[in-house]
């Protein structure tokens, strides 16, 4: 039962939505509208499950004083503090989500700088990695090195010092060889998605059940 019911739901739902996409009829549209209204509501319940699971895991770590348990506090406190500040604390006490509020202050002065910093660290690691690993060890590696250098220079204004031709070559690399390679990869990925989707809809691929009913 635990395996059969989900398999039937996936098969019926999958086939229905596939067929619906190609039928511009009122009844078909009604099914579509009904689905798009329901799906986000069902999806929102997944959030409850996720938050519940996260809370349980970290609560146990804190209670048992597991290794690095203070990090669990760092997860749980903001997880509950932010919604409380944004949704429950009255605006008169600096609640709410819009500026000026504590929620907005924390978002703009903690969340934004932390994430931006993490992303900007990439520049430092890329520079170090490029110095150590980017070698013209073979003909193919040399082609890669040459094209990367041209594209990097063509992407910035200083590249125009080397003449207008450099930018044209850089754009040509992006618009033709890059495009061809990307399209080939995307075709492969697309067919892979199609095959996997059909296997899931028709019950051939069952890993998503996660061992239910065994």
């Amino acid at each position: 039962m635990k395996r059969t019911v989900p398999l039937i739901i996936v098969m019926v739902g999958g086939i229905l939505m596939m067929i619906q996409y190609f039928i511009p009829h009122q009844a078909s549209q009604a099914v579509f509208d009904y689905y798009t209204e329901w799906a986000p509501i069902v999806g929102a319940f997944a959030l409850v499950l996720g938050v519940g699971s996260l809370t349980r895991v970290h609560f146990h770590r804190i209670r048992r004083r597991s290794k690095n348990w203070p990090y669990s506090l760092a997860v749980l406190i903001p997880l509950y503090a932010m919604p409380i500040l944004g949704l429950m604390v009255p605006v008169s006490l600096w609640g709410g989500m819009e500026s000026p509020s504590i929620f907005h202050f924390l978002f703009m002065h903690i969340q934004v700088p932390i994430q931006s910093t993490m992303f900007s660290l990439l520049a430092f690691y890329i520079a170090s990695a490029a110095f150590r690993a980017f070698r013209a060890k073979s003909a193919l590696a040399t082609v890669l090195l040459g094209s990367a250098t041209i594209v990097m220079l063509a992407q910035v204004p200083i590249g125009e010092i080397f003449g207008p031709g450099l930018q044209d070559v850089g754009l040509w690399i992006l618009r033709f060889p890059n495009l061809a390679a990307k399209r080939a990869i995307q075709f492969g990925v697309g067919f892979g998605i199609l095959a996997t989707s059909l296997k899931i809809i028709f019950g051939v691929e069952r890993n998503w059940l996660g061992g239910a009913g065994e």
Binding site: A127, T149, Q155, I158
Partner: peptide, 17 residues
């Protein structure tokens, strides 16, 4: 900034090679 950073990375690649 991006011009300077790209130029530096290219110089580092050349020096490394």
């Amino acid at each position: 900034v991006q011009s300077a950073a790209h130029l530096l990375i290219i110089l580092l690649i050349i020096m490394g090679n």
